[in-house]
Design a protein around this nucleic acid. Structure first.
Lengths: 181, 181
DNA sequence: CACAAAATCCAGAAAAAACAGAAATATGAA
DNA sequence: TTCATATTTCTGTTTTTTCTGGATTTTGTG
C-alpha cells in the first residue's frame, strides 16, 4: 500500500492527519479513499464546506468530489446546508458519533450479512428439495444458516432498542459479565 | 462488478452456489475473492482437500491457490492434515461457526479499529501539546476517541467472556431489552 | 544420496477500481 | 430571458489489485 501525499493540503496539521488516516482506512471499511477523506474533512471541520473548498483542500478533481458527496448523501451521513450570501451548496456531516456508526453498521449489515443470509436460505431450500448433497455439507449449511439467523435476529433486537439502552449495553461491559453467569 | 464463471466447476450445484457466493462476498468482507472461495470449499467440503483438487475445482493457477492457502493458515482458519498413502498436504477449515467468526472479528478489529484508535490517541496528544486547532475540531476528536475507547473496551470485555456467555448474550436478545431498562 | 513430486516464489499480464478533465446540464440572480 | 456560476455526466487515463505460468526450492521416498 502506497501512502502518497501528492499535493500537500493546506490544512491544520491535526486535520490533515485525520483526513489522511481516514482515507487510508477507507478501503478497509469498504469505502473509497476519497469518500472517506471527504467525510473526515466534513466531520472534523468547524463549518460546512462547499465542494470547491473540498476540491482545493484535498487536491482532487472537482467531479470526483461531486460523486463522492453524492454517495455520502445517499448514506445519509452528509447533509446539504445553505449559507447566507453564498449561492453554493455547503456540506456538513452528522456530528453525533452514535448516529454515525448506526448508519455505518446498518449499511454494512445490508451489504455483508443480508445477501449471505438470503443465499443460505435458498441453499437450505434447495437441500430440502432433495438434491444429492453430502450429509456433512448439509450439516455445515445448517450450522452456518443458524448462526446467521441468530445474528440477524440479535441485530434487529438491539437495533430496535432505544439509544440509551444500547449505550448502557456497551457501558455495562463488566456488569454484563456477571449477569450472564 | 462482473460475475464471471470462467471455467465451470465440476462441483455439486449446492457447493458451487456457496463457493461462488462466498467469492462475491469476499471483497465486501475485506478478503480477496480467491481466498474466500477456497475457504468456502474447505468449510463445506466433507473431507480435507489437497491443493491440486482446489486448483481443479476452482479453475485457477496452482500458485495462487498456494498463496491463498497460506493466508488462510496465517489467520488460523485452515489447518494442514495428512491423509494415509498420500504424500500431499490436505487442507481443512475449522468447522465451528463461533470459533470461525471469532477469528474473523478479531482480525477485522485489528485491521479496522485498532489503527484508528491509535491515530485518535496520537491526535489527542497533539492537541494537548497545544496546537492551534479549532475548538469544534477538538471536540469532535474527543467524541470520536471516547467512542472508540468505549467500543474497544467492550470488545475486550465480551471477548474475554467464556463462549457460553457470549452465546447467551446473543440468544437472550429479548431478555436483554428488559434488563437494560 | 538421488530423483521425483509437491509447494512456493517471482515477474509480468489481465482485470478492476479510482481518478482527471472536458463537455454538457442545471440553477439562480438580474 | 439571459448570463454567469455551480454541478453533474461521460470518456479516457492512471493506479491498484488480482491472477498466471514458468523458475526455483523444498520435501518425502526408494
Amino acid at each position: 500500500m502506497l501512502i502518497s501525499v501528492k499535493t500537500e493540503m493546506k490544512l491544520d496539521p491535526v486535520m490533515e492527519k485525520l483526513v489522511l488516516h481516514w482515507g487510508e482506512m477507507g478501503s478497509r471499511w469498504g469505502i473509497s479513499r476519497m469518500v472517506a477523506q471527504i467525510h473526515a474533512l466534513l466531520y472534523f471541520s468547524p463549518k460546512p464546506l462547499p465542494a470547491d473548498e473540498i476540491t482545493e483542500a484535498l487536491g482532487v478533481a472537482r467531479s470526483h468530489v461531486s460523486n463522492s458527496l453524492k454517495e455520502l448523501q445517499t448514506w445519509g451521513v452528509v447533509k446539504v446546508v445553505h449559507v447566507m450570501d453564498d449561492r453554493r451548496e455547503h456540506f456538513q456531516s452528522i456530528k453525533d458519533v452514535w448516529q454515525l456508526f448506526e448508519i455505518l453498521l446498518d449499511e454494512r449489515k445490508r451489504r455483508e450479512l443480508d445477501p449471505t443470509l438470503k443465499t443460505l436460505r435458498e441453499t437450505q431450500a434447495l437441500l430440502n428439495d432433495g438434491t444429492m448433497t453430502d450429509p456433512h455439507t448439509r450439516e455445515r449449511v445448517k450450522d452456518m444458516l443458524a448462526f446467521f439467523e441468530l445474528m440477524d435476529g440479535w441485530y434487529g433486537e438491539v437495533r430496535r432498542m432505544p439509544l440509551e439502552s444500547r449505550v448502557k449495553l456497551v457501558k455495562w461491559g463488566t456488569r454484563l459479565r456477571g449477569w450472564l453467569s
